[in-house]
Design a protein around this nucleic acid. Structure first.
Length: 980
DNA sequence: CCTATATCGTA
DNA sequence: GTACGATATAGGA
């Protein structure tokens, strides 16, 4: 055992050898050399041993190294791959005769008694960067033996590089030669220019030269990105803006980690005299005659007295070379899923295929002149026939409205391959410019005939239909009696892969993956006052826009579907996303009934109340002003009336939020109370009582919201136009609005909601036995928390104690901070901090859960739900502490909120079949995060509720068997308020 | 005319 | 303290 505990000091010289890189370069630079007796390739090994010998003897290499480590890449699975799965993904297979040299070089290192370092999840570069950083901190010189440009960011006055093949030193000047910037700017250049070898994306159209120039002009990457809008060159400016996030991702990839938790500390890589006999035995086994002789001479060893290392000699059974080489082979990959794009089918692994698709995607430029306008049925039949042959087709519909429930079909486009796309105009009308009478433009296939022709294609089990935000097109066509199946949705695939990391609309996806900017809708239809609906767009212009959408969708699918498989997210997509397209489309199609008379009456009542309050407000203020204007109100309260205790908003204006006014009201000020009352009425009137009736569809007489599947970072749905997920419930006045949501005659509304689902998931995920037990025993969870924390018995507990515990429980779900809890409970921050401390003492598992989640998110840039959904937080490592803390809280919350969202999605995906299987006519109408609302025939209510409850409670199975029970409460009533 | 800000409704 | 969307006002284009 050798003692390696010397302490590094400033006179030392730390030498770090990039082992893996050395082998590659030596293999290609040196003439092939094989061991005489068995033709084992050893060229790189020989070069390596010669270099080590020079180093330890300090021959032509001053000063003599005191510390030396040979550093290797260990596995392909590095933290960079977790950030960006395509990183270094297109590495070609190693040459046959190179593979056995890796283990031999490790053996050589050991034979020289030098440290051989490799660590899971880190590349050799990161390990070297960490050693260099630590050595520098002690004032020690460092030489990195490598010519890898990725290491050049480390060069400074203490750290130099040395190219072992060219025998030359690399200092700041050489780095400038290569990158056009000083070493401290190398990272920024690489972030912009990217690297095709390592598959670092960078910004399209920017190479090293341009990057260096831009950095000379703007200083650094962040400044450049912030001021990108100032750049004159159009394409360059657009790319810098569109790919800013990609540049930041690239920066993460190229920045070497300087704080790797080293398994072999710096002090342990001190150079020691080798055990000479073992070294000679190794060299002899390698049959390096010249070097063996030199080494033996230097140490005064009689050559013939040493036997070659028996493990390594030619013909040795199961020699280290071959056993270790086997482990270096490519990782086995499961077979790829369905796949139809040409050219990349033969590739071995899903990852390679995904990388190839990404690389190919930008290569075929979009050529709009090749799009066909289909105006006769024979041509349409031809396209349909070719789609059948191909087995997949991208489709996009064009309409005259964004509202899928009332939009008229204007035309549709199909795409079969890049640039092989067509547009089928159906209902275009004259521009109506006064010269020509409005009416159908001639030469369009009659709507019914066209639909009859494509229906068999769109409903054929054997042909995959591909859309972008397909729920919209599905609804349009469903209203014409066509139910598209099977299908894929590029927006949802992107959402599964990149939620939180990048947007999922067609234009950003196209720019990101295809390096192509599609025609803007405004360019064909105009914008603002001059905008026309798509049916009035000239067909020649419509073709380019519409066919391009199908073309782009198809190309996106080729890239994203391959990534989905490579990144192992097919199950998330197939179970949590894809089924929801038709489920939500059907919910939207049904809509919900509202009682317009009731809302109209409420609107009148609210108006009356507001008028009365306005009179009182003017009276108290001594003047009339608009109570709806925070600016005017702030001036009255804090200017004119000089009420103390005002706060400012981030923009410097007086804050007049409800919390501020509430406080003033409690101090006895009358005006703020009136304002609060007025605001409540104003909100209820404008947002609900007046707005909801305008959403009633004239044909159905019902309100059809639109649910967005890909709008949130956590996996929740969102609802808009109108938002039916924020219908009032907390106040008596508000519940009057909710009462206006009613069941159709002969039906009732059934509301079924998960009880405390996020807290239950907290107990599950944070593995907290006491919390879990409480749920298993059906206890009041907030009272139980209070009892644990404050030692108060549950029986006869004061309401205030329970209220505080409840606020803490919610706080935990939201990633708690003393500041937030203090705010919520109106208590001093110190007191809130003490509560949190106490909570963590009682529930240590939850603190561990929060710490683990933070650390995981920090390391990976995302968190995962129980079901594998990824929520990305690209700013989790922000330097700004408040941004970072915000992201940490969001990440902590996302695992819980997202897992709950997954569960209700699973329930929804199964609900239709469960109801149909039980011969029930209940229809799911709405989802409000932890609640589902159904419309159920009166006589089926008793039979329906148990089915709904069971599907919801069993939703995690079989993917996840929770140890905490899920509880669902369901009730039926004539209106939503009473059912809830 | 369009965008940003403040406010407030929900889970 | 998390996640959303709608409305009104205000101010620059």
């Amino acid at each position: 055992m050798t003692d390696r505990t010397d302490i590094v000091d400033p006179n030392d010289h730390v030498v770090l050898i990039d082992g893996s890189a050395y082998i590659f370069r030596a293999y290609h630079a040196l003439p092939p050399l094989t061991r005489t007796s068995d033709k084992l390739p050893v060229g790189a090994v020989a070069g390596f041993c010669n270099m080590l010998w020079k180093l330890v003897r300090a021959q032509g290499f001053e000063p003599k190294p005191t510390h030396l480590a040979v550093v290797f890449d260990k596995s392909e699975q590095t933290f960079r791959k977790e950030i960006y799965p395509l990183y270094k993904a297109q590495r070609p297979d190693l040459p046959e005769d190179l593979i056995p040299q890796f283990p031999l070089i490790r053996e050589a290192t050991r034979a020289f008694d030098l440290a051989c370092v490799e660590q899971d999840r880190y590349e050799a570069d990161d390990i070297m960067a960490t050693y260099a950083e630590q050595a520098k901190a002690r004032g020690t010189r460092v030489t990195i033996i490598s010519s890898d440009k990725d290491l050049m960011q480390l060069v400074d006055e203490k750290v130099r590089m040395y190219d072992p093949m060219k025998d030359r030193a690399i200092g700041a000047d050489e780095v400038f030669e290569k990158f056009g910037v000083s070493p401290d700017k190398v990272i920024d250049v690489q972030s912009l220019a990217g690297d095709s070898v390592d598959n670092v994306p960078g910004v399209p159209g920017i190479g090293i030269k341009t990057a260096a120039q831009l950095l000379a002009d703007y200083g650094d990457l962040d400044t450049l990105l912030a001021r990108a809008a100032e750049i004159k060159q159009t394409k360059r400016r657009e790319n810098l803006i569109a790919f800013a996030d990609q540049a930041r991702l690239s920066r993460e990839l190229v920045t070497l980690k300087r704080d790797v938790p080293l398994e072999v500390p710096l002090d342990e890589i001190a150079v020691v005299e080798p055990e000479t006999r073992r070294l000679v035995a190794f060299l002899k086994a390698m049959e390096f005659t010249t070097l063996t002789r030199r080494v033996a001479e230097a140490y005064g060893i009689e050559l013939s007295a040493i036997e070659p290392d028996p493990k390594l000699v030619a013909g040795a059974p199961a020699s280290v070379a071959f056993t270790e080489a086997a482990e270096l082979g490519p990782e086995p990959e499961p077979a790829a899923g369905e796949d139809a794009a040409a050219g990349t089918d033969g590739l071995a692994s899903p990852t390679e295929r995904a990388v190839a698709r990404v690389a190919e995607a930008g290569k075929t430029p979009v050529d709009r002149s090749r799009y066909e306008t289909v105006t006769d049925i024979a041509r349409l039949r031809d396209w349909v026939g070719r789609a059948f042959e191909r087995g997949y087709v991208a489709i996009d519909t064009e309409t005259n409205s964004l509202d899928a429930m009332q939009a008229e079909l204007v035309g549709f486009s199909l795409a079969l391959a890049p640039n092989e796309a067509c547009y089928v105009p159906l209902q275009h009308v004259g521009a109506g410019d006064g010269l020509f009478a409005e009416g159908l433009v001639p030469g369009q296939i009659p709507l019914t005939e066209a639909l009859e022709t494509i229906k068999p294609l769109l409903e054929d089990d054997g042909v995959l239909k591909i859309g972008q935000n397909l729920k919209y097109d599905w609804l349009i066509l469903a209203r014409h009696g066509i139910e598209i199946a099977p299908y894929d949705d590029t927006m949802l695939i992107s959402y599964v892969l990149d939620a939180g990391a990048s947007p999922h609309g067609m234009d950003p996806l196209s720019m990101r993956w295809l390096n192509h900017t599609p025609i803007k809708y405004e360019e064909v239809a105009g914008k603002g006052k001059g905008a026309v609906t798509f049916d009035r767009v000239a067909i020649e212009k419509a073709v380019e826009y519409a066919a391009e959408d199908a073309d782009v969708t198809l190309r996106l699918w080729q890239v994203l579907k391959a990534r989905l498989i490579a990144e192992r997210k097919s199950t998330v997509y197939e179970t949590l996303e894809r089924p929801l397209v038709t489920v939500l489309a059907n919910m939207e199609r049904r809509g919900i009934l509202i009682d317009r008379q009731m809302l109209s009456r409420l609107s009148g009542d609210f108006a009356q109340g507001m008028a009365r309050l306005e009179a009182e407000i003017s009276e108290m203020a001594g003047e009339t002003f608009n109570p709806g204007s925070p600016k005017q109100l702030g001036d009255i309260l804090f200017g004119k009336m000089q009420i103390p205790g005002g706060r400012k908003t981030p923009t410097g204006a007086w804050s007049t939020g409800a919390d501020v006014l509430e406080e003033l009201a409690e101090q006895g000020h009358e005006l703020p109370r009136r304002i609060l009352d007025w605001r409540q009425l104003q909100k209820l009137k404008s947002t609900y009582a007046d707005a909801l009736p305008t959403y009633v569809n004239p044909h159905s007489g019902r309100v059809h919201t639109s649910f967005a599947l890909a709008a949130t970072t956590t996996g929740r749905l969102s609802s808009s136009e109108p938002n039916l997920q924020n219908i009032p419930v907390r106040t008596e006045e508000g519940r009057k609005i909710r009462k206006a949501f009613v069941a159709a005659p002969g039906h009732k509304l059934v509301s079924a909601d998960y009880s405390q689902i996020e807290l239950r998931l907290l107990a599950e995920i944070a593995d907290t036995p006491s919390l879990r037990q409480a749920f298993q025993d059906g206890l009041d969870i907030h009272a139980m928390t209070a009892s644990e924390m404050f030692g108060v018995p549950i029986a006869g507990m004061p309401a205030e104690v329970r209220r505080r515990a409840k606020a803490i429980n919610f706080g935990i779900i939201y990633g708690i901070s003393a500041f937030g809890l203090a705010n919520q409970l109106s208590i001093p921050r110190e007191e809130a901090g003490a509560y949190i401390k106490r909570y963590f003492e009682r529930f240590p598992g939850i603190r561990a859960y929060m710490d683990e989640t933070r650390a995981f998110a920090r390391e990976h840039g995302y968190v995962e739900t129980l079901f594998g959904r990824r929520c990305h937080y690209p700013d989790i490592a922000a330097k700004n502490p408040s941004i970072r803390a915000f992201n940490e809280r969001a990440a902590i919350n996302a695992r819980l909120q997202g897992s709950a969202a997954d569960i209700i999605r699973r329930a929804m995906a199964r609900m239709e079949a469960a109801l149909a299987g039980a011969r029930l006519e209940a229809r799911m109408l709405l989802q409000v995060h932890d609640e589902l609302i159904f419309e159920v025939p009166d006589d089926q209510i008793a039979a329906t509720i148990p089915v709904i409850t069971r599907v919801m409670e069993e939703a995690p199975m079989p993917a996840v068997a929770l140890t905490v029970p899920l509880k669902v409460d369901a009730r039926a009533a004539d209106n939503w308020d009473e059912a809830h």
